[in-house]
């Protein structure tokens, strides 16, 4: 679906952060910001909440530990106990390494895939660039015209005053 956006481009990260702060202080909501590297201070400026993705690692990791522990217990104690080197069937200590590895493996993979799902990234997705060069040296601040109450002229003025190199209105899918 194509929507209308007001896109301001910058050539400097610090000016971008200032612009975001300004725009938000005038009660515009920032649709998104596009940058060639993660600009520090933007999280606060945009008022982003801390992502909850790490919780997935914790949960899936804990699941991995449990899985490894129960599986080793099942195979070595319940299903087919076998005396190897006089070690007890239930050698919990010897299972620690595999429990650890499975925790890390599942925890790591889960957050990777959770990120892809949450950020809607997938192989072959057609990129939607807010401006040319946002993956190189350009920073873009994007406001969305939600309804007629959006004061396009005022927003444009604000952005131009905060040092944008170019401000333009674009119909796009972002």
């Amino acid at each position: 679906m194509r929507r209308t956006f007001l896109i301001a481009t910058f050539s400097d990260g610090d000016r971008l952060v200032k612009a975001v702060e300004t725009v938000r202080s005038y009660n515009f909501s920032v649709y998104d910001v596009y940058s060639p590297y993660p600009v520090h201070g933007l999280d606060e400026a945009m008022g982003l909440r801390r992502t909850r993705l790490p919780w997935i690692t914790l949960l899936v990791g804990a699941f991995g530990t449990t899985l490894a522990l129960t599986f080793q217990f099942y195979t070595s104690v319940l299903d087919w106990p076998l005396n190897v080197g006089g070690k007890p069937d239930n050698s919990t200590l010897a299972w620690v390494p595999i429990c650890f590895e499975l925790t890390v493996l599942l925890g790591g993979l889960s957050i990777f895939f959770a990120l892809l799902v949450r950020a809607r990234l997938y192989p072959g997705k057609k990129e939607q660039l807010a401006a040319e060069g946002v993956t190189n040296d350009t920073f873009a601040l994007v406001l969305r015209k939600k309804d007629s109450a959006f004061d396009m002229k005022y927003a444009r003025e604000l952005l131009e005053q905060s040092g944008a190199d170019e401000v333009k209105v674009r119909e796009a899918e972002l």
Binding site: H40, E44, R50, P54, W55, T57, L58, G61
Partner: peptide
């Protein structure tokens, strides 16, 4: 930027 007071990497934790 980059001084120690600066919030840089916010740590690793779930």
């Amino acid at each position: 930027p980059g001084r120690h007071m600066q919030p840089e990497l916010s740590g690793v934790e779930p």
